[in-house]
Amino acid sequence: MTITAAQTRTAVDYAAVVSEFFDRYRAHDVPGMADLCTINADFSYPPFEVWGKQRVLRADGKVGTVGRAIWAGFIQAFPNLTNVVHTVEANDEGDVVAQVDIGGTQQQPWGLITPAGKTFSEPHLFLFKGEPSGLISSITGYWNNAGISQQLGHLEVD
């Protein structure tokens, strides 16, 4: 994909970048996913939390730090991780919404969930912001964390 800074972008262009992002995710190409983002792209997965004794880790930060680490860890824990893109809707201002099912079979620990060889598939909603440069400047993802935990056999009671 060639990106030209002076080019005027349309909804179709922004949707194509997001579709390419999920193609690279499906191929487990974390560097390629990050290459579709600006150097300082924002990253937020509000449902993601890992509770420890002294702190809670949350997925808010930048694609280059938090995002890449989460994607790589997720792919490592679920080697057959895949995604099915149902819809990608965009506008000419670079706002993109994608409905995607993500799933896989757990082979290694993920957060506090020990591997039991179980499979999950959960709907996700992603919000992207595209820039006139053709790159993504913001990614936010939502899903039902309890649904994933239940499918993986991890039932937690506070």
Rank of each mutant, 00 (worst) to 15 (best):
T119N: 07
G141L: 12
N145M: 13
G134H: 09
T140M: 11
E122Q: 06
L112V: 11
P132K: 07
S133L: 09
S137E: 07
S138F: 08
G103T: 15
L125G: 09
P123Y: 01
P123A: 00
I113L: 03
A116Y: 02
W143C: 15
N144W: 05
S137R: 14
P123E: 00
S133K: 10
P132L: 13
F128E: 05
G104M: 02
K118R: 11
F126Q: 03
G134M: 12
F120K: 10
P115T: 12
A116R: 11
S121H: 03
H124V: 12
K129E: 07
Q108K: 10
S133Y: 05
L125W: 05
W110L: 15
S121K: 06
G130A: 09
L125H: 09
T140S: 14
Q106H: 02
Q107A: 13
P109I: 03
L135Q: 12
L135G: 08
E131W: 10
F126W: 10
A116L: 13
N145V: 14
Q107L: 15
P132I: 14
P109N: 04
G111N: 02
T119W: 00
I139A: 15
P132H: 07
I139V: 15
K129R: 14
S121C: 12
S137N: 12
G134E: 14
S137D: 06
L127R: 05
T114Y: 01
I139Y: 13
G117S: 02
K118W: 00
G104N: 03
K129D: 04
Q108F: 06
Y142Q: 12
Q106F: 00
Y142K: 15
T140Q: 12
G104H: 00
